[in-house]
Simulated assay, not measured.
Amino acid sequence: MEYIFRQAKPEDAPQIWTILQQAIQRRKADGSKQWQDGYPNLEVIQSDIDKGYGFVLVVQDKLIGYSAVMQNNEPAYNDIEGQWLTDGDFIVIHRVAIDEQELGKGYARTIMQAIEDHARNTGVYSIKADTNFDNPGMLSIFTKMGYQYCGEVYFRGSARKAFEKVLDK
């Protein structure tokens, strides 16, 4: 499968927001509390894009996925209840979402692989991420892709499962 994984542009914001709204509704339908408190929202997406954190997955000229990708920029990760595998530079993954018409085709894993490639290309060999305890889809992806559970971190008062993957150089 050929794809493009690139930084999001301001004109991508409406499509990204549509994809995230779909994901918010899926989480709600699944009975999850994740993303049910007004976050993420369009302002968060616009901020991601403005700061260079927003990345999109494009397949056959269609934007089908989104993720925020940051380096060394997650203060909540400083207070993990547990222990990270590494202490050096790391990439942070947040807000992974796939267009509902494209679910079940492996695109979330494609985004995760593209982020790993991006990390290696920038000379960073650690990726850290978190998700709610009630998000079986992301928990499964982390397991299948070799992420190790490291403990819990807290966002907006809620505990999240924290994972890290150390990449081969």
Rank of each mutant, 00 (worst) to 15 (best):
D130Y: 06
N135K: 05
L85E: 14
L57G: 07
R6I: 06
V58F: 03
L167W: 10
E100Y: 05
F90Y: 15
D134M: 12
S140V: 00
K144P: 01
Y77P: 08
Q60R: 03
L139D: 01
P75H: 09
I115H: 00
F133P: 05
G151K: 10
V124N: 04
Y66T: 15
T86H: 03
N41I: 00
Q22A: 05
Y149T: 02
G151Q: 08
R26Q: 07
S67G: 08
H118C: 11
Y77F: 15
A108S: 02
Y77T: 00
K105H: 11
Q25G: 05
P136G: 11
P75I: 14
P75T: 11
Q46K: 14
Q83T: 12
G106A: 04
Q25R: 15
Y3H: 11
A13C: 13
K105G: 04
R156W: 10
E11N: 09
V166H: 07
I91G: 08
I64S: 07
A8H: 07
G54K: 04
L57V: 13
F133R: 01
V124M: 06
G65H: 03
I141T: 05
Y53I: 03
K28D: 00
G38R: 14
I4H: 14
G38H: 11
L85W: 10
F55D: 01
D48W: 09
I127A: 09
D30N: 13
K161T: 06
F163E: 14
G54Y: 12
L63P: 09
Q148F: 04
R26P: 02
A23H: 03
Y154D: 04
V59R: 06
D168H: 12
I24Q: 14
Y147I: 00
T122W: 03
W84E: 03
I80G: 08
G38E: 13
C150I: 05
G151T: 09
S140D: 08
G54T: 13
L57A: 07
W35G: 02
D79E: 10
A162D: 05
G146W: 14
T143R: 05
D12A: 10
G54W: 10
Q46W: 05
G38N: 14
R109W: 01
T18P: 01
K161A: 06
A97Y: 03
S67Q: 08
E74V: 03
D50Q: 10
A108G: 12
T122C: 07
R109S: 11
D37T: 09
A76I: 15
G137Y: 11
A23F: 04
M145T: 14
L139R: 15
L85K: 12
A68Y: 12
K51E: 12
A13M: 08
G123E: 13
S140P: 05
V44P: 00
N41S: 00
V166W: 09
W17N: 15
D89V: 15
V153T: 11
Q113R: 15
A68N: 11
G88N: 15
K144H: 13
Y53N: 10
T131Q: 12
Y66D: 12
K144C: 04
I111D: 00
Y147C: 09
M138Q: 12
S67D: 02
Y53H: 15
A29L: 01
Y154C: 13
F163N: 10
N41P: 08
N121L: 11
L139H: 06
I64Y: 08
H94M: 00
W84L: 04
